[in-house]
Write a protein that binds this DNA or RNA. Structure first.
Lengths: 206, 206
DNA sequence: GAACGCTTCAAACAGGCGTTCGAATGTTAG
DNA sequence: CTAACATTCGAACGCCTGTTTGAAGCGTTC
């Protein structure tokens, strides 16, 4: 399961991602993680200091990547002459989708994100919103500009619905919904198309 | 916090609901639960058999209530001459909202539902879908009838987005989004209005 | 080769976990 | 009052938790 060529630190991160996604942060123990990573138990505290810090590093690794490619995609859309709502949404979804399809185990992380959102653990929520909230604000600004008729309140609610829809839909990827005989890549593309269409219409609601 | 007039069993259920919503099923211990409920530790295993069974009973108590009132609301809508999509969505959301506003602590349960959704614990998912999936199917049928132009696939995806958006938004009720000086009841009503409008438009997307 | 820093290791730590047990207590029926 | 039952209680069970410790294994540098 875990590639032995990777460093101890990376193997711990990968195994932790998988196990936390499967059993939750409290549900998966460090012994399970280190055993899956083929690593000594004490390695976690040596490399990460504590279980809690391991969780933070885990999010940092993926979210840095995710927000970077989201920012890039958004800038690209902004550069075009007439940005459409669909294009902005695409810029938001596509990076998450390619993360989920990453061979490096990003699909577990997508489920982990959904879990983190459901948890009302203030510490984790704070960490995420502090470090990555600004990207979401950028998207909100562009979308607000594209929907000038919408009140601040309504926009706020609808953006929340959009992120909820995305989070939960993504957390199911590869679980139950994929029909047999369709490639992962194709599955994700149709997922993205459905989502963008749905979200754009919802945001444009009268 | 916990009403001492209630029976041991009920106090355990209430305390468990709160604590599990706050810390997760693995994160909250029976000692925390029984201590919050002002009840002896052994009472849980005496009344419920095990922690796992306590969790099941917890869901049963609320979901029975929720699905019953959803079914009633749907039947009412079905009885009208020209059911609108908005009315059907209202029938789906309103029972969840009044559960969340229930003085009996239903608001914790709403967050618990969001958590259960995010957990990919097969046991729990199975329990929920086995016992309450038929109500969702009823809603899906009515909505499908109202949107005849939609393919089965598209409908499936969009219903998933809708439930994701709802779950996610509801899990935040009373947390950060409520502006000061607005009553809970009013807050929930505007939430429902925003949601129905958003979801209806998304479902109707071209 | 000795000394160094970095990493791994087995073992142990104190503490919390779900569950079980037998005695004590409370409640109901004859 | 007594017998029978239901519930509560404190204590303990064995197991698992995150973390710490000190020694052992390394490759590098003097």
């Amino acid at each position: 399961m875990i590639n032995p060529h990777f460093s101890t630190k990376e193997r711990i991160l990968s195994a932790a991602e998988d196990l936390f996604a499967k059993s939750g942060f409290a549900g998966a123990s460090l012994r399970q993680v280190t055993s899956a990573a083929n690593v000594n138990l004490a390695a976690v505290n040596y490399h990460f200091g504590s279980k809690e810090n391991l969780i933070n590093e885990l999010f940092k690794r993926r979210l840095d990547e995710l927000t970077a490619s989201r920012t890039a995609a958004l800038d690209k859309v902004r550069g075009t002459r007439q940005p459409t709502l669909e294009a902005v949404l695409e810029a938001f979804v596509q990076p998450a989708l390619s993360l989920a399809s990453d061979r490096g185990g990003g699909s577990s992380f997508v489920r982990l994100l959904a879990r983190a959102f459901a948890e009302h653990d203030q510490r984790l929520r704070r960490f995420v919103s502090d470090n990555y909230g600004h990207v979401l604000k950028e998207f909100a600004k562009v979308i607000a500009h594209l929907l000038p008729h919408l009140s601040k309140d309504a926009l706020y609610w609808r953006l929340d619905f959009v992120s909820g829809a995305l989070t939960y839909a993504m957390s199911d990827f590869g679980m139950i919904k994929k029909p047999a005989g369709i490639s992962d890549e194709q599955h994700r593309r149709t997922a993205a198309e459905h989502f963008v269409r749905f979200a754009a219409a919802g945001l444009r609601a009268p």
